[in-house]
Design a protein around this nucleic acid. Structure first.
Lengths: 143, 143
DNA sequence: CGGCATCCCCCAGGATACTG
DNA sequence: CAGTATCCTGGGGGATGCCG
């Protein structure tokens, strides 16, 4: 199972296709990645915790738009996968801190590459989109 | 264990929080990335097209589990963003080929980093998950 | 062959309210 | 403060059928 990869060019076709296997596609890295960072809040939480231990309410405030419910759920999920460590201080009122693990830190680092991609191509994509929509509109008018 | 950590601090907080701005969070790279690769099929399609021009039906066959509908929809979306180029050969029966653009190629390269992360930590995560679930079960029994 | 159109279902995720 | 619990909705995505 834990075979080391060799280079950058991996022919992922086989892994994507999933071959004859039937079950949960556990061996497909694409799915694995998507299941972890695919949600709406996972990476945002990882990012927010990357600056050091942070409390529940602080997280809630720093991640704009997140609901209490999703914060809790996503935190649990991340903790379960060993990406976050939850520390409870039995004081009153209660105090709970979350901090990232090294695994999560690496994930974040990798994700930065993607964010950089987004930043670099933002304008290109916006342009392509406008062109596409424009062409579609023209085409529609000509029918 | 509650001491402030000093490590890899990149302060993305502002971008995540969105600061004083109000609108559609267009400036947030996290969202941008997620909107592009967050879906179930986008990267898989990009991967499948990375080996050279490929036809619709070939794609359908090589990406296991995808429906005709989602294939079409995702292809359109990718084309719209300038990640794929669609070429129609007006033959009969029709022939359509899809090929990746450089932008998509770069995206793929970045995504490889994430897949590599998944591969490297697969076992660690699986272990963490088992431990967590086990602890939860014990805790539940003790109540 | 390479698609749209239509119907339908499921669940990620929001809103709100209650508690140790 | 840091959560649960419950209810409810939107839209991502599957299945199926028709068509140039």
């Amino acid at each position: 199972m834990s075979q080391r990869n060799t280079g950058v060019t991996v022919d992922v076709r086989d892994e994507v296709a999933g071959s004859g296997s039937d079950d949960g596609l556990d061996g497909c890295p694409v799915r694995e990645v998507l299941e972890r960072v695919g949600g709406k809040w996972s990476i945002q939480i990882i990012i927010a915790t990357s600056n050091g231990p942070i409390r529940f309410t602080e997280l809630e405030r720093s991640i704009e738009g997140i609901s209490r419910r999703m914060l809790t759920l996503t935190l649990r999920s991340l903790e379960r996968d060993g990406l976050l460590i939850r520390t409870v201080y039995p004081t009153v009122p209660p105090k709970v801190e979350y901090m990232v693990t090294d695994t999560a830190r690496e994930l974040y680092a990798s994700f930065l590459t993607l964010m950089d991609w987004a930043r670099r191509h933002r304008s290109t994509i916006a342009a392509a989109r406008k062109a596409y929509d424009c062409a579609a509109r023209v085409e529609l008018a000509n029918r």
